[in-house]
Amino acid sequence: MRKGLHPVTIAMLLFGFAFLYAPIVILIIFSFNEGKLVSVWSGFSPKWYGELLRDPQILSAAWMSLKIAAMNASVATVLGLFGAYALGRFGAFKGRTLFTGMMTAPLVMPDVITGLATLLLFVGLAWQRGMSTITIAHITFSMCFVAVIVRARLSSLDQSLEEAAMDLGARPAKTFLLITIPMLAPALVAAWLLAFTLSLDDLVIASFVAGPGSTTLPMVVFSKVRLGVSPEINALGTLIVLLVTLCIVVAALIFQRQEAQRLADAQMADRAD
């Protein structure tokens, strides 16, 4: 039945990927442009990277963003794991419907609504706005994305592994630590990274809940971009793309090697019977 792909399907794939990647490729090319224009080539130069790395505004905002992202990812992974575990393993409990709703709504809620609402809460609580408020706002939606990833993995886990651990005398908390968490490890790593990038990427919510002195990287980028195109931003984009690509490719290679090893082992083992 698998006769290969229909030419129309292949054409659609090519078109789709060209659409997804053309802007990124162009962004990268023009980050090395000598001139200030990002659409007319005027010679190769890495000077915009130098400009970028000397821009104190961008550097301090990037540092702020990284701190927020790391904190957000760590807390969101724990909360998202707990939430996913409750939804995946506890069966019916009081308030489940409300909980499910609160765990899924942030996935699609428009940022402007979430941002405004969260800000009003902080104003109501007379909470000093700054890094902490941005982090809290980010955790709130990040944990829901974490939960989606963890739940997908959790539902594919054989529940009898946890039952076997308990049957062998491990208390629930110990079972969770010794069996559930190691089994979920790849999903937890992926979830942490996703939460990290979601936070690093957010402009709208951060703009609402930020206070003086808590300018994040997207806020700086946004203000620069509104004033007009700047090759400095191209350089920044290129660095982000390279970093992410590197991470993903390395992760994929490790995963692929493990998978290949596992397959080879399994084939060897089956010959033993």
Partner: peptide, 10 residues
């Protein structure tokens, strides 16, 4: 996984 803002900007 890469910056949404910068991709729109591109």
């Amino acid at each position: 996984w890469t910056s949404f803002l910068i991709r729109v900007y591109a």
